[in-house]
Design a protein around this nucleic acid. Structure first.
Lengths: 335, 335
DNA sequence: TATTATTGTGAAAGCGCTTTCAATTTACAC
DNA sequence: GTGTAAATTGAAAGCGCTTTCACAATAATA
């Protein structure tokens, strides 16, 4: 059922009447081998179901055929899909992914990164995180690396940002175009870069339209549904008028939507909502939620492939990904 | 910034005036070492920031300090949270997780499993999957292993099933208790064990109440939102009366709910719905969805810890996890 | 006190592979 | 033909660690 794990390169060499060096050569294509010899060795390898011992290879060669993937919180939809994309991107490359979860905690990031280095990963993909730029610059000099969702000064060509600013601007602008002037914003965790970017995008769209931002209409959430309801409660309590809400992610939009409902406010008749991330359920909310869609699967796949190229010394060029606003029914034109 | 990666056991031995054997011994506690020597070695290890080379260790010792985690589809909420639980469960154990995605495809499962064995993982955690029982029984004889969401005959003590049958029964029974008799069921993918179990639970609850199951009220879905709307369209087209729907997961419940809304049917006044999995948005749907909640985080954590114990030769005992029905507002009592 | 375990430690043999280094052929140009 | 480059191959030296095996020094037992 499972190939005999005890076959070594020695066995192959013996059976094929060559030295282990030769076997190693046909295995790695590292030097010319006579066609006939190559074929014979290959046949025997196949017959015996020989698989080189990866540890021996790594020890001797210095390659672990492993890449480290550091995510921030397994279980958050957007990142998880990126993860799947990465898996697709490296599929067939011979590299296997070692995972770690930083939990949006710089310390855990460090620990994970150290673990990766101890295990001598051949490459690294970071999904955002709270590690300092300096540390990453240093790290990048030691191992091929791709950084998602963040741009590190000095490593621009290895970074693939997520377009948070532009997307948030686009979302806010849409609300403005549909006639809204008093637009509330439920932000994400403001210690996260992406939340800041989105807030800035919102602010910029307002400024662009000559609308003065009202601090009272900006509430910090934490990316969870409950924080969405809290935000609406807060907004209502403050008594400021608003006709629309731009939430920094869909989960908070869900929360906001329910809170509005509880207070007898209709969506979109009384209040319009736009979310961010376009999670699967959003199109099935009542009413279906207008939201910003990104392409996490593609992002992950591109990152995975780029890392493989990078590890093989090929030049890489990371594309820019554009977000698109999925217009549904949670926004109503205001006259 | 990053510890000098060139320090080897030789360096430590030299500085400490002992042989490398001794250093190895203090490192692994594999034989008594004089207290004074041990302290000296430890101090030098610390001073030089020495970290043993894992490949050398593995090659010489046969342990990879790595475990393989095979999930089925990164990006599905329930499994992803289990993954996070596993990460928590093995944290601090010194084992690092290698991930692979089987995509509910027996072949990919095999490939991943082979990859794990090539990499000589010390342990394995399988989240369900389509690998044959025989194969797994064989595998279990080669490496410590925990199987989640499925029970393999002969490996019962290594399996932690998910209670699908009982939970589905509980959900259906609740609908019956609230006065519903014509209860539709949107199943999951019926080639998946869990979908079958849930369907059986549903059937059993009906039988128990003396309600004859109507095949026309059972529609196969595929666990996605769109299949939920399709199912309702189908149900409506068939023209059979029903006052409640039990969906095999929340996503399909979302779809069903929207489809009902489009057709002018109110939830729960006209049709009651109960879902399965209690995903985060469910409590924020309108109306909040009654659903079955399981504890994926705990399940994962327990599995992770159990595997560590298993690898260390300790006896394990997997607990039974109970699901609970989260009663919210999507079900209305029928008189 | 003689004998037998125990401790404490180093030398050396691998673990299974990659990679010089050198030697032996073979091929091609002049 | 003769010389030189290219093709083929093996021996051997590691890669950095774990683990016998041996041996000396102590401690425990009779």
């Amino acid at each position: 059922m499972y190939p005999d794990k005890k076959t070594t390169i020695q066995d192959i060499a013996a059976r094929a009447n060559v030295s282990i060096s030769t076997v190693s050569r046909v295995l790695n294509n590292t030097a010319p081998v006579a066609e006939e010899t190559r074929r014979r060795v290959l046949r025997i390898i196949d017959e015996l179901g020989y698989k080189p011992n990866l540890f021996a290879q790594s020890l001797a060669g210095g390659q672990s055929r492993t890449i480290g993937v550091l995510t921030q919180l397994i279980g958050s939809p957007f990142y998880d899909v990126i993860l799947r994309g990465i898996l697709q991107g490296i599929e067939g490359s011979g590299y296997s992914p070692l995972f770690a979860d930083g939990g949006w905690d710089g310390n855990k990031d460090r620990i994970a990164l150290n673990m990766f280095m101890d295990r001598k990963v051949d490459g690294l993909i970071l999904l955002n995180g709270h590690t300092s730029d300096d540390y990453l610059v240093d790290l990048a000099s030691q191992v091929p690396m791709i950084v998602l969702g963040r741009v590190i000064p000095g490593l621009e060509e290895l970074c693939l940002p997520f377009d948070d600013y532009e997307a948030a601007r686009k979302a806010t602008r849409y609300l403005i175009e549909t006639g809204h002037r008093r637009i509330a914003h439920i932000t994400g965790i403001l210690s996260h870069e992406d939340a800041i970017e989105r807030k800035n995008g919102y602010l910029s769209a307002l400024a662009e339209a000559g609308i003065e931002a009202d601090p009272d209409l900006i509430i910090e959430g934490d990316y969870t549904e409950p924080s969405g309801v809290m935000a609406v409660e807060m907004l209502l309590m403050r008594g400021r008028i608003f006709s629309a809400i731009f939430a920094s992610n869909d989960q908070m939009a869900y929360g906001a939507r329910l809170a509005l409902h509880r207070r007898g406010l209709r969506v979109p008749e009384d209040v319009s909502i736009v979310g961010f991330d376009d999670q699967a359920p959003s199109a099935y909310m009542i009413p279906p939620l207008t939201s910003i869609r990104r392409t996490p699967l593609e992002i992950g796949e591109v990152a995975g492939r780029a890392l493989v190229d990078l590890m093989q010394g090929k030049p890489i060029r990371l594309p820019k990904f554009q977000s698109v606003l999925m217009i549904r029914e949670s926004v109503m034109r205001r006259l």
